[in-house]
Nucleic acid binder design. Structure first.
Lengths: 120, 120
DNA sequence: AATACATATGAACAGTTGTTCATATGAAAG
DNA sequence: CTTTCATATGAACAACTGTTCATATGTATT
């Protein structure tokens, strides 16, 4: 939160201080909003969305995902790292193979919510 | 959808063709997934998230939003354009002033869903 | 018509992001 | 211990994104 000084290019006959103050009070803190944007940023790439959609159906190893999506193993591995650090996927190791799966139910909810909006 | 030829760096002893085919059949078409990613990309910027949160509370003009968020009128206007073309906000003109508001209820749902995941 | 002002827009620039390529790590099998 | 292979990682590069600055558009007011 910060004091609002007039911006260089605006003289603000239109500024309603009361509304601004009410809205400002209702705003979550900056950090939460930043974190929320970071979360959506992770969903905002079609390769990652495709990976998540694959994992919606079945636990799967890196190679299978790469093959399924027609991308290199490296590309998928890099993206799985992003998904992992956003805590959207988890993994388990079985010998040489690493199986990835969705971290929790939230991921399903978020994706299907977005898809609903897209499909309308 | 595409045939899956082995990738250069993978010999795939691990590839389970049956699972891959099942998942491939369950996948939405590429276009839908791309559109979904595009939608989330719009949410994936903290300035735009903050704008949406402001509009969650009240219809507001460009100048007020700029003042409230401590950003230039130009920056806000550019971002409103992005939000508008993603059909997340709508606007009405009243003289010199343009008031922006949320386009529909989906926006609320999507945001609060994401926030729920962030807050846990 | 001329001015004032809220908003929109185009160009430019820095910062970020996704992929590729080359290489490293880690686990099983010989 | 060496080889094989699935996965991870670092560097590099092109493509994309968000802001700023300068300027244009559109709507009142005089």
């Amino acid at each position: 939160m910060q004091a609002f000084e007039p911006m260089p290019h605006c003289d603000y006959m239109c500024a309603h201080t009361d509304i601004i103050e009410r809205v400002q009070a209702a705003m979550p803190n900056e950090e939460a909003l930043y974190t929320l944007a970071e979360l959506y940023k992770v969903f905002g790439d079609s390769t990652r969305i495709r990976i998540l959609y694959v994992l919606l159906e079945a636990e799967m190893c890196v190679c299978d995902i790469a093959q399924l999506l027609g991308l290199s193993q490296s590309a998928i591995s890099h993206q799985l790292r992003v998904l992992k650090s956003a805590q959207l996927v988890k993994y388990r190791r079985d010998g040489k193979t690493v199986f990835y799966s969705l971290a929790d139910a939230h991921v399903r909810t978020i994706i299907s919510n977005g898809m609903e909006h897209v499909m309308e």
